[in-house]
């Protein structure tokens, strides 16, 4: 046993082997993110008549471990847009800092006016994030996220779009990342299959659909949580609630499940 103070608090060499310091060296090839580590699961969003509703649960997982149960994954930008992050949480936090910087720069542009005119809208922001994520994929140093961006475009129409770690971007009346694209998207498309359908939805209906989807996701996605954040973007601004509890759950269906495949008892 090594009793020198230098060895205090360190893993014992005789038990764990000599400590590998190689990760500390700053010469040699640089290691870019090769896989997401701490992750957030689905983000879902749907457009309605006067805006967009978005939600994501408050969990950050470490593999299958529910590691951080109070991580907020929706972020407001300039009180006019919302960004929802799924995927790697450290990359989310990097983007969060970056966006704070961007919004401060943007506020400097025209300090005299307090109107939103001339500030980056959701469409501008989406374009910017698409460029950022696409550049990082070109550098083989991707930001391991899929983002949803909600707000309004240059014509003041509701805007909802997605960008992923490869810079692929698209828009749709409703969008979902991760498991949500298989579980929530079909439900949302029942209510907003087209832009015209979405333009008929009321705010209450849209919120209801989103809550229903969050419930389905909690039932079936093993990396999800029953505490979640929900944001409603309107022309007036963003209303963000970050500590919601899933309501009206019913696990009655669980009793009906009798194993899988041929098992019947």
């Amino acid at each position: 046993m090594d009793h020198r103070p230098q060895a205090w608090g360190r893993p014992r060499d005789d038990v764990y082997g000599a400590y590998d310091h190689s990760y500390l060296q700053n010469s040699g090839p640089r290691q870019a993110t090769q896989a997401p580590i701490v992750t957030g699961t689905s983000v879902i969003a749907i457009k309605y008549k006067n805006g967009v509703v978005m939600a994501a649960d408050n969990l950050a997982s470490y593999g299958s471990l529910a590691r951080f149960p109070d991580v907020k994954r929706l972020r407001v930008f300039l009180d006019s847009s919302v960004i929802g992050f799924s995927g790697d949480v450290s990359d989310m936090q990097f983007l969060d800092r970056h966006l704070t910087e961007l919004s401060i720069d943007e506020a400097y542009e025209d300090p005299s006016s307090d109107s939103k005119a001339g500030q980056l809208n959701a469409a501008n922001l989406h374009k910017y994030l698409q460029k950022l994520l696409y550049k990082r994929r070109n550098d083989f140093d991707p930001l391991w996220n899929q983002l949803l961006i909600a707000g309004f475009d240059g014509d003041s129409k509701p805007y909802l779009a997605s960008v992923d770690l490869r810079g692929t971007s698209f828009t749709s009346p409703s969008l979902a990342t991760g498991f949500g694209s298989a579980l929530a998207q079909p439900i949302m498309r029942r209510y907003a299959a087209t832009e015209e359908d979405a333009a008929k939805l009321s705010r209450e209906e849209a919120v209801e659909v989103i809550k229903e989807c969050m419930k389905v996701l909690y039932y079936r996605d093993a990396r999800s949580l029953d505490r979640y954040s929900i944001a409603v973007v309107t022309k007036e601004g963003v209303e963000l609630k970050e500590d919601e509890q899933l309501e009206k759950q019913s696990w009655a269906f669980a009793e009906q499940i009798k194993g899988y495949g041929t098992q019947t008892v």
Partner: peptide
Amino acid sequence: QHRFDPYT
């Protein structure tokens, strides 16, 4: 080896 695939 699992690594980043830049294409889809």
